[in-house]
């Protein structure tokens, strides 16, 4: 049995996860095990979609050719691998879907955001897949910053009622072309996150800090809003709220599991307390250094 920390949870698992942080602890928040998953969910308030169904406390997800996943009561994930499935794919969809369901079941809100540590807090970079979140934090890392989290940050209220974020796990996922953009050597084949996908893992277990942190600033990376130069714009609370809401991780679950109220309260608080900026950039060319310079200048200016 393996013991890990990930997404703010102590995780006990009979599957090995090189992605998560090995730790020792007393009682587990979440158990991951291999077994038979239910064929379907029953009962009222069931939301059924394609290969996925959910209610407030159960989530059943199938990835054909990979595995079936059943996440329940914020405490357990049962995995039933499909014949011939590779382990990387099995872990990838668990860490993106079933885990998000566990977080929602525990009333925690995962944001689609990467983050770097900044002073006593963190700076969030939100955006859809392909927006440049991982490229941005890896470039910051190359220039000496500590990466807080990649792809997902979990929001929660701490014991003092303050809004804080927790990291996901110490692995950055980078598309093939990002390595050259950042000035890194091309990754080896063995680091692919799925055998036929041009996306690679970069682990940073040694500098991974699991303590909850306050959010200092949020940057929305918007690949649809193209400009001739790299531009930064401070958003008003309403526009900030709207874009933060769009960057909720696995928003289908938020609706299907009836977490809209909790989500609304968290996002409203974030938009009210933290400055939100939008970054637009040209559609072509390598603009990552210009983006980093602009963010650094903005961080100084708004401290």
């Amino acid at each position: 049995m393996y013991s890990y920390w990930g997404f703010g949870l102590h995780i006990k698992s009979d599957i090995e996860f090189p992605e998560l942080l090995p730790v020792t602890f007393g009682s587990a928040d979440l158990s991951i095990y291999q077994g038979k998953v239910p064929r379907q969910l029953e009962g009222e308030n069931l939301v059924k979609m394609v290969k996925v169904s959910m209610n407030e406390n159960e989530y059943l997800h199938a990835v054909p050719g990979v595995a079936d996943y059943y996440a329940s009561n914020g405490q357990e994930i049962c995995v039933e691998a499909h014949p011939g499935a590779d382990e990387k794919s099995i872990r990838l969809f668990l860490l993106s879907n079933a885990i998000a369901a566990i977080l929602h079941q525990r009333n925690r809100i995962p944001m689609h955001a990467s983050a770097i540590c900044h002073e006593d807090g963190i700076v969030l970079f939100c955006g859809r897949s392909g927006a440049g979140k991982s490229t941005t934090v890896t470039t910051f890392q190359k220039k000496g910053s500590i990466v807080f989290s990649d792809d997902v940050c979990v929001l929660e209220n701490d014991n003092n009622g303050e809004l804080v974020a927790l990291p996901s796990y110490p692995m950055i996922k980078l598309w093939e072309d990002s390595f050259a953009k950042i000035g890194l050597e091309t990754a080896e084949e063995k680091y692919k996150i799925r055998p036929e996908l041009a996306k690679y893992a970069r682990f940073y277990h040694d500098e991974f800090d699991i303590s909850p942190r306050k959010i200092k600033q949020v940057y929305i990376l918007d690949p649809e809003n193209r400009t001739d130069n790299v531009e930064i714009k401070k958003l008003g609370p309403l526009a900030g709220f709207k874009l933060l809401q769009q960057n909720t991780y696995r928003y289908v679950q938020m609706n299907g599991m009836k977490k809209r109220n909790i989500h609304f309260a968290m996002i409203s608080k974030l938009a009210a307390e933290v400055p939100v900026f939008q970054i637009s950039r040209p559609s072509h060319g390598n603009t990552i250094d210009a983006v980093i310079d602009l963010i650094n200048a903005n961080l100084l200016h708004h401290d």
Binding site: M49, V50, K51, V52, H61, E196, V252
Partner: peptide, 23 residues
Amino acid sequence: ENCTDTDSTYLYDSEVKNMMPEV
């Protein structure tokens, strides 16, 4: 993605095309 709750950037094109009819 609205119908499948899946990050489609993790899927292979053949997997997407197999799910399209149901979507």
